[in-house]
Design a protein around this nucleic acid. Structure first.
Length: 674
DNA sequence: TTGCCTCGAGATCA
DNA sequence: CTCGAGGCAA
């Protein structure tokens, strides 16, 4: 009897899944919405009577019961890469040239062309046909676990169709909000007097960041799948277009506009065609993507740093609008650099309101001949940073004001210095300048530096303006009663800040060096310095010559470091910081301190996700040696595709062998230790 | 650079 | 209720 019910339930689920599949993937529903709802209600009621038969992949179980506390981290087995962008036909033609050259082929290349959705990239992991995890792209290597939210999207199969899918399958796609859904959602919000979303992309992004999946479920989200990540235990077709086809049979929705074309001419035709269709498409796109269709060719082409050589995003021209430069302010950075920033009459550009745009430096201002009062064309370059493209010269008002580099710092009135042949002008006030002091403290407290939680911009401004501190070391002398009473700072917040300061005292040498804000010493260089010296003292007496032995340190960086440590003021602040208890665990000196010191690696075969050189760089950065041939002294052999004799030798000698995936994971783990 | 979400806590008003 | 900090994404 129970067996019977479990059967009925299962068959109901299968029928609902099939109808879903017909509806979303085949776009060919066989029953009305009302009939579908009836089936669904039937399943719900049966499951209610027999909760023991509820499974997580049941179509009734899309919305989880309890809100999350936070999103967990997810490591991507295969990194989620970004795409190289092209803005002109020439860029596209050049791309095709590079592809043909690298493949040593004169015939036209077959490309898979797809619209580029304006949404968020996600990765969906299926194990034995069940959705087990969904993650955001994050930085490409680590994303966030948004499984509960992704499950609420009806276009996402919780269970795959058919039987032929690999036991482990990661599918990548773009989550987006259709235009119609976005408009409807905002209309509803408006009626309720709630805040409306600025654009569909932000609405989609915001929806996925909900801790409570019930809210996500009420948002009209959709997805198009466009590729695979990790695949284990199955064989996929050898052409990208065929992979998309097989994804469809498993229940994934693939964009219907996708086409396979021959040669670059076909790509450009596709671009034009989609461009024409763009206003009528039910979702927003910002370009098209071309991918070399043959996977073997893709593998041969490989990657450049973070982007595949076999794919290109051909962007539509950025939306351009006109507005007025109302004024120009000069901002003073941490190093005293004066940056002209245009205050614009606010305008809507590609979905956001823009009111500020950096003009970078005076050379830029001169080249574009920008005056205050000018009508200018602005766009969001690379979709993010607002940019003043040009002045509409025929609209120039009778009276405009030339933009002048101030002779004196707008904050501290020290003389502004412009070094010849350099674009950047600097306030000469140094740490006498409150602006520079503020920036220095902000940098010191920032997450990647000393990570002082709760010490944000506003607070630093207040501290400096009220003369409570003048350098980072003073932070540690702050008293509760000094803090409490500042704006938005009552006793509780003040206490929290003191605790955060106390906590920050325990740090690492690399963080500390980075926090000091030495010119040209970013996170990477700081790490190199810390690894090389292992302690702080040698840096005080390091010379320009000796510093250049460190990787990535050239004469200029070396000079900056020497200058920094030769200044009394800097030495004094460092001394004070150490005196109040800033400390770190000493790490052993130089290369021998690195985790892979003394280990020898041999690389063989073709690696997919990074080049030989990149792999070598990474290993060497961790202290390993990379050798050409395998011997008994070899610690590991990393084998890519088509590995030959070296792999054989490794096996003979019993040397540890790492496949590419293992190797990537290995690197991730090791990098953390370092 | 902007917009979004979340959290904690201060400010305001009943 | 409102604001700031912090994190994330493009």
């Amino acid at each position: 009897m129970t067996n019977n019910i479990s059967h009925t339930i299962e068959s109901l689920r299968q029928r609902i899944n099939d109808h879903n599949y017909r509806y979303y993937v085949l776009d060919d529903p066989r029953i009305s919405d009302a009939e579908y709802d009836t089936l669904f209600a039937e399943l719900q009621s049966l499951e209610k009577q027999h909760p023991e038969f509820i499974t997580t992949d049941s179509p009734t179980q899309r919305v989880g019961a309890v809100p999350l506390k936070e999103f967990a981290e997810v490591q991507h087995d295969i990194p989620m890469l970004s795409l190289e962008n092209a803005f002109t036909e020439e860029d596209v033609i050049a791309f095709n040239h590079r592809v043909q050259e690298r493949l040593d082929r004169v015939q036209d290349i077959e490309y898979n062309c797809e619209p580029k959705l304006d949404g968020l990239a996600v990765s969906l992991r299926y194990e034995h046909g069940l959705l087990v995890r969904a993650a955001t792209r994050g930085d490409g290597a680590t994303g966030e676990d948004i499984t509960e939210n992704i499950r609420t999207i009806k276009m996402v199969p919780l269970r795959l169709q058919g039987k032929e899918y690999p036991p482990i399958l990661e599918v990548r796609g773009e989550v987006y909000m259709p235009k119609a859904g976005f408009i409807a959602l905002n209309k509803k919000a408006e009626i309720k007097g709630e805040k409306i979303f600025a654009n569909p992309r932000n609405a989609a992004a915001g929806s996925l960041r909900q801790l409570n999946p019930r809210i996500t479920a009420a948002r009209p989200l959709a997805i198009f799948c466009y590729g695979v990540g990790k695949v284990e235990g199955g064989v996929l077709p050898s052409k990208h277009s065929d992979i998309l086809a097989v994804l469809k049979t498993w229940g994934f929705v693939v964009n219907p506009e996708i086409e396979v074309v021959t040669g670059i001419a076909g790509c450009l035709d596709f671009y034009k065609k989609i461009g024409k269709k763009r206003p009528n498409l039910p979702y927003e796109i910002d370009g098209v993507v071309y991918k070399v269709n043959n996977l073997q060719d893709q593998e041969r082409l490989g990657f450049v740093s973070r982007a595949p050589r076999w794919a290109l995003a051909h962007k539509f021209p950025a939306e351009q609008v006109q507005t007025v430069i109302e004024s120009v302010e000069f901002q003073v950075g941490r190093t005293g650099a004066l940056t002209p920033v245009a205050r614009l009459r606010p305008v809507a550009v590609s979905g956001v309101t823009v009111s500020n745009a950096t003009l970078h430096n005076m050379d830029e201002v001169k080249r574009k001949d920008i005056h205050i009062g000018d009508i200018v064309i602005i766009q969001r370059a690379g979709d993010v940073i607002p940019e003043v493209v040009s002045v509409v010269i025929e609209k120039r008002p009778a009276i405009t004001e030339k933009i002048k580099l101030p002779e004196h710092c707008p904050v501290c009135h020290s003389v502004v210095e412009q070094i010849e042949d350099e674009a950047i002008a600097r306030c000469s006030g140094g740490l006498f300048c409150p602006a520079q002091r503020k920036e220095a403290v902000k940098h010191f407290a920032s997450r990647r530096a000393m990570d002082i939680e709760g010490l944000g911009d506003k607070l630093v401004e207040q501290l400096i303006d009220n003369d409570l501190i003048s350098n980072p070391a003073d932070l540690y002398k702050l008293k509760l009663d000094e803090l409490a009473g500042l704006e938005r700072m009552a006793e509780k917040s003040a206490q929290n800040l003191l605790e955060a300061l106390e906590k920050s005292k325990k740090t690492t040498l690399a963080r500390f060096l980075y926090a000091l804000g030495i010119r040209e010493v970013g996170e990477a260089t700081a790490k190199n310095l810390a690894n090389f010296f292992g302690e702080l003292e040698p840096l005080f007496s390091a010379t320009v010559e000796s510093l250049q032995e460190i990787s990535d340190v050239g004469p200029i960086v070396a000079q900056h470091i020497v200058t920094f440590f030769s200044e009394d003021h800097n030495r004094d602040v460092i001394k004070k910081l150490l005196a109040v208890g800033v400390h770190w665990e000493t790490v052993k000196k130089s290369a021998s301190a690195l985790v892979l010191a003394g280990k020898t690696f041999v690389l063989t075969g073709t690696l997919v996700s990074l080049s030989r050189d990149e792999a070598k760089d990474k290993l060497e950065a961790l202290g390993a040696k990379v050798a050409g041939s395998v011997s008994a002294k070899t610690s590991y052999v990393v084998v890519g595709a088509d590995a030959g004799s070296k792999l054989k030798k490794a096996k003979e000698l019993g040397v540890a062998v790492l496949e590419e995936e293992d190797f990537l994971q290995f690197l991730q783990v090791i990098a953390k230790k370092n």
